[in-house]
Design a protein around this nucleic acid. Structure first.
Lengths: 138, 138
DNA sequence: ATTTGACCTGGAGTGCACTCCAGGTTATAC
DNA sequence: GTATAACCTGGAGTGCACTCCAGGTCAAAT
């Protein structure tokens, strides 16, 4: 009955190492996020070791999206705190997300502009290189 | 004859404060970039104050594009060093730019994916909010 | 000539997001 | 049951990209 597969022991929870592997976040970072209040206190085994549930993983995935799109830890703390405070904060959370979404759009636009300029620079260098090789040959 | 306009004195050079204003980089950052070798030693006035030429501004603009698109100072140092070493390094510089361009593309794609997921989350919150208000009214 | 503000240098300090460590407890394999 | 590996906590350390500071020089206006 007892399943040796760590993925399914103890009601489908994961150890910190397993979460680390799945998310790419280090165990230290996972503890740090919890200490910082980005994650509510994760459930523990009898021996006080973390056991992450599916909901924890979903929340982590969301946090990672916010991080990857440039939200600061401080803002994520704020968001997590609102979330912890219950349904009355939905409007505030929505406002935060909308603002973040909008600044993300700005950022993507800026990157696209810069990508185009980079392409021009690359073309310039390709031309230089062609000429150089031509010189070498002639 | 002597023009009081700082933009046009001394052969069209700019003081550090003027460059700071135009670029948005602080004077400290401009000095830091020079100290770090990202910029060749900028020309000086008789009294040892920096006077930026048009070519310096162009190079700065390029550096800023690299920064904005996520290149590290260390990589920019490398690029600047290659540039300083002359035409023989054009192929290396081109390779660096191509690699950076490609990772930038990856990054933009990743941001777009995350932006889409964020939109979904926002929709979810909007739905929550609608329901909540409905509940309030009923 | 002098005041005031901009600028210089070398080096120390800051904020962020981790990352590592010591010293101890718990789990797994044999 | 014991060796070994994984985990725990609180707190110190790291790397990056600046940013600030002290103590001094230079420039612009009066």
């Amino acid at each position: 009955m007892a399943n040796g597969n760590p993925l399914h022991q103890g009601g489908g929870t994961l150890t910190i190492a397993e979460v680390s592997e799945r998310t790419g976040l280090s165990a230290d970072t996972l503890r740090y996020y919890e200490k910082a209040g980005l994650i509510e206190r994760v459930g523990r085994s009898a021996g006080n070791q973390r056991r992450y549930a599916a909901a924890d993983l979903e929340w982590l995935a969301f946090l990672m999206r916010l991080r990857e799109t440039g939200m600061s830890i401080a803002d994520m703390q704020h968001f997590a705190q609102l979330r912890g405070a219950g349904g009355a904060t939905v409007a505030d959370r929505l406002a935060m997300l909308r603002e973040h979404r909008s600044s993300l759009e700005d950022r993507i636009r800026c990157l696209r502009r810069n990508a185009k300029a980079l392409d021009d620079k690359i073309n310039h260098y390709e031309l230089l290189l062609t000429r150089e090789q031509g010189t070498e040959a002639g």
